[in-house]
Design a protein around this nucleic acid. Structure first.
Lengths: 237, 237
DNA sequence: CTCGCAAAAATCGTATGCAATCTTTTCTGG
DNA sequence: CCAGAAAAGATTGCATACGATTTTTGCGAG
């Protein structure tokens, strides 16, 4: 899969930062797995695709590299990250540490508006699960991540929110790489249970459910190295 | 305090990224409070000081902006961050959530080498506390942060380690801004107690001590707004 | 003397050019 | 025909240039 095969919506951006808009587009493409891990993202190509100079493209790639979605090698360029099983474990270890606390914080701040937003989110999630087709699984992973991001935004700590954005994005990459098929619908029901606990202000329960939920997601991964990591890395795929 | 008044060690960098070296220098200067919150960091000046073009200076500033140490405004430039009391609270809320878990992880991975490193670190910390002089307090804050960074590195999760780097850096800013005088020596003894628990593999105790330690640090802050935050912000100081 | 407005200066956002480095192709000797 | 070296091509790292935006300065009116 080459980046040149991708099409991206025009960068409207208006007066906002163009690099940021490009970063968002690329992040979506990576998280949706339209750009496979290991894909080279050359400054020139990115620039051409978005109709900006290499300067701007480079800034966007630098941002993604900070988020861990892109790995840059000096004088060689940027590549979509290809997280190792160890990295995958660290991503989920981080989530186990952070997200239960976020659930507790969010439980104390739920408003009716928040509940409505969660309901809408879960509806959409269910719709994607019901759907079939080549894009269904991608949308499903995306929507599932959005649930966690919504939770983080309700918790009201912008620093943790940003950490979660990074962790969710990396998780999507990991799931795309190492995920087995099933379980996602199970994840949907777990989301619903968490929301129920949040609605009732039962922070302890929400926190415990979240911890189990993360465990379930990670348990669905196959983190055994697939045929020697050295080989895969050597072939850059 | 102007950035032009600062002197920086030459950027050796060898083959490594020059922008990264500049970022590290600036970060140290900010954390040490040689650069006051609100100080303007213009691309041109930074470039001149480090003898690089604006391109490289800009990249360094972009990195600092990701870490939250610098705030950038479009078409206006970059400024040393001036965290609000609310931001300060969020920094410490994040640390309360993350660091006890890091302590637990570290407790399970302590080696004699690690213990030695901690001992050396605490020695240095004690030395700075004993010292008097204009730079003593800066060095003290820095060394205190280094204890937490060392702990994060022992925990063995590179993602959490990076989060901690950001949180510790932001904490230093917050302490410099809102810290009352005392208590730091108290922090030193708390570090020693934490190390003792780590050495004994008593992860629960280490975790609990860490939580209290963070509470104590935050309790030493005076987070009341000082004369209307709007005014301070308007005056950019 | 102060206020408001216009011109000048400074600074940022971005494109582009050149040298350095890496990759690929081509050439040569065995 | 193949291995290794040399050249050609592509890509990055960085500096610089120029238009756009913001800030400062200068000056005249009130």
């Amino acid at each position: 899969m080459n980046i040149a095969d991708q099409t991206f919506p025009a960068v409207d951006s208006a007066n906002e930062d163009r690099a940021q808009a490009i970063r968002d587009q690329l992040r979506d493409a990576i998280v949706d797995r339209r750009l496979a891990p290991g894909t080279k993202l050359s400054e020139g190509e990115v620039g051409t695709l978005f109709d900006v100079s290499r300067t701007v493209a480079r800034a966007a790639l630098q941002m993604l590299s900070f988020e861990g979605l892109v790995r840059t090698e000096r004088n060689r360029g940027a590549f979509v990250a290809n997280p190792s099983p160890e990295e995958a474990r660290q991503v989920f270890a981080s989530r186990r540490l952070i997200e239960p606390g976020i659930a507790i914080a969010a439980a104390g701040r739920m408003t009716p508006d928040h509940v409505a937003a969660f309901k809408a989110q879960l509806d959409e999630e269910g719709r994607f699960i019901a759907e079939r087709g080549p894009n269904a699984r991608r949308s499903e992973i995306k929507a599932s991540g959005d649930f966690h991001l919504l939770l983080a935004s309700v918790a009201g700590n912008t620093i943790l929110q940003r950490f979660m954005e990074e962790l969710v994005a990396r998780s999507s990459l990991v799931i795309a790489l190492y995920g087995r098929s099933g379980v996602s619908s199970c994840g949907h029901s777990e989301h619903m249970n968490i929301l129920e606990a949040l609605e009732n202000g039962n922070s302890e329960r929400a926190s415990a459910l979240m911890l189990h939920h993360i465990d379930h997601i990670e348990a669905d991964l196959d983190l055994r190295v697939r045929s020697g990591p050295a080989l895969r890395q050597a072939l850059e795929f």
